[in-house]
């Protein structure tokens, strides 16, 4: 990343999150450049989702600073951070369960609706024009994800894979510049994971996004991330591209236990 003159989109420095006596995240730094597709990995309880929650404003960091573009967003409310251009999906899918697929996406588009509440109550000309625009835009998002024929269905009745896709579609409808995906491949079979990887590449190029994702499936992470940050017990233990990470002793030991790196080395030599 030395000779990189792309603009920095997210800069987190010295993030600390303390829950009572537990330091969930300690001294976390992260820099994302425009167009990055970065991964955040680590064993369970390493503090990855806490980092997401700090970036999206669900938690206010105990210490540290987060800058998005040239604005500081530390401690802002989640909805403001979303409106500034950071959207996310959740580890356990959080759709609006009893609403239609279309409405799920239209809600995310609300900050861009472009008419006032008075227009909404009166249902005047401006409302009708803007509402039609909004609906067509939402349907566009759905068709990108191949969900356009499902628009009238209730979100919770969709199969799991489609719920995941809908959640990503909904996050994109907020028109973000940075997209945070929390375990997008969780619960997917290998085929679905491959399709998901294509999809993530596709949306990054089509919507000119920067993407940061948390993922446990190494196949997905190593397959699509250009840059990986590894966390363990709230601390960053390694950074680098997939090959560097795979060769890193500390990473292997964090996942498989102390001594595992030496063992795997022995195993490799035997082969």
């Amino acid at each position: 990343m030395s000779a990189d003159n792309r603009e920095t989109i997210l800069q987190a420095s010295g993030l600390v999150m303390q829950f009572g006596g537990l330091r969930a995240v300690n001294n976390f730094d992260l820099t994302l450049k425009k167009g990055d597709l970065a991964g955040l990995i680590g064993p369970n309880g390493a503090g990855k989702t806490t980092v997401f929650n700090m970036i999206t404003g669900v938690y206010t960091p105990t210490a540290g600073k987060i800058e998005f573009g040239d604005q500081e967003i530390t401690g802002l409310e989640p909805f403001r951070i979303n409106q500034m251009g950071i959207a996310r999906t959740f580890q356990n899918i959080r759709l609006f369960p009893t609403l239609t697929v279309l409405d799920n996406v239209r809600i995310a588009y609300h900050p861009h609706a472009g008419y006032s509440m008075m227009d909404g109550i009166l249902h005047n000309k401006k409302f009708q024009v803007k509402e039609r625009e909004l609906t067509e835009r939402a349907q566009e998002f759905l068709s990108v994800f191949n969900l356009q024929d499902r628009q009238g269905e209730i979100a919770s009745s969709l199969p799991y894979g489609e719920q995941r896709r809908l959640e990503i579609a909904r996050a994109l409808a907020a028109e973000p510049r940075l997209l945070l995906l929390d375990e997008p491949a969780a619960g997917m079979n290998p085929n679905e994971s491959v399709a998901l990887m294509d999809l993530i590449h596709f949306i990054r190029d089509r919507f000119k996004l920067t993407i940061l994702l948390i993922e446990h499936q190494m196949r997905v992470v190593m397959g699509i991330c250009e840059h990986i940050t590894v966390m363990d017990f709230g601390e960053v233990i390694a950074r680098g591209n997939p090959t560097e990470i795979q060769a890193n002793t500390r990473v292997v030991e964090a996942y498989l236990g102390p001594g595992a790196a030496a063992l795997s080395e022995k195993f490799r030599r035997k082969k």
Binding site: F79, N82, F90, R94, F96, P97, L99, A171, A174
Partner: peptide, 10 residues
């Protein structure tokens, strides 16, 4: 429907 999701959606 979901307060946390609503917040995250702006």
């Amino acid at each position: 429907e979901d307060e946390i999701a609503a917040k995250a959606m702006g």
